[in-house]
Simulated assay, not measured.
Amino acid sequence: MAIILRLDRVMADRKISLNDLADQVGIANVSLSKIKTGKVSAIRFSTLNAICDALDCQRFSFFHIGCMLPCGYWACALFLP
């Protein structure tokens, strides 16, 4: 099982750019880009709360738990609330 980030989809739905979100959250563009692409191994809850406040979404609304299928596609097993 893996945690799949869908921050890019939430940002697209809200029509907000990476630069604008980074400014609102108060973190560097590079750090937010790493979060968006899933290149981080941890994220502070304070950062997660700031992202959710800026995007006006529920906590963990852009995380999914899934697994890689043998064909190479991801299967989402559970959507976190």
Rank of each mutant, 00 (worst) to 15 (best):
V30E: 15
F60A: 03
I51R: 10
I51Y: 13
K34H: 12
N29D: 14
R9A: 13
A77I: 15
S61A: 01
K15E: 06
Y73N: 08
I27L: 12
D20R: 04
A28V: 05
I35H: 02
L21P: 00
F79W: 09
A42L: 09
C76T: 14
D23C: 00
S31W: 02
K39G: 08
W74Y: 07
G26M: 07
A28P: 02
M11W: 13
S17D: 01
L69M: 14
L78C: 14
L7M: 04
G26F: 09
I27W: 14
K15P: 00
M68N: 06
I43V: 15
T47M: 04
N19F: 08
L18D: 06
S17P: 00
I51W: 12
N29G: 11
S31F: 09
F63K: 03
N49D: 08
A12G: 01
D56G: 03
A12C: 01
C52A: 06
H64K: 12
A75T: 11
L55W: 04
L48H: 15
D13M: 13
C52Y: 10
I51H: 06
I51C: 06
I43K: 12
F62N: 00
S41Q: 13
K36C: 07
S31L: 05
S41L: 06
S33R: 12
L55T: 01
L55R: 03
G66A: 08
L69K: 15
I35P: 03
P81G: 02
I27Q: 10
G72M: 02
R6A: 03
L18C: 02
R59L: 14
N29T: 11
S33K: 09
G66Q: 07
L78V: 15
L5H: 03
A22N: 05
L18G: 01
V25H: 10
K34S: 05
K39Q: 14
K39W: 06
N49V: 12
V40H: 14
I4Y: 10
N19E: 12
I27M: 14
A75P: 00
L48F: 13
R6Y: 05
A22G: 00
L32D: 06
D56R: 10
F60N: 11
D56Y: 02
A75K: 07
I35A: 04
I43E: 09
A75H: 12
F79P: 01
V10R: 05
R9E: 15
S46L: 05
A77S: 12
T47Y: 10
N29E: 04
L7V: 15
S46H: 13
Q24G: 07
I43N: 12
G72I: 00
A22D: 02
F79L: 08
I51N: 12
V10N: 00
M11L: 15
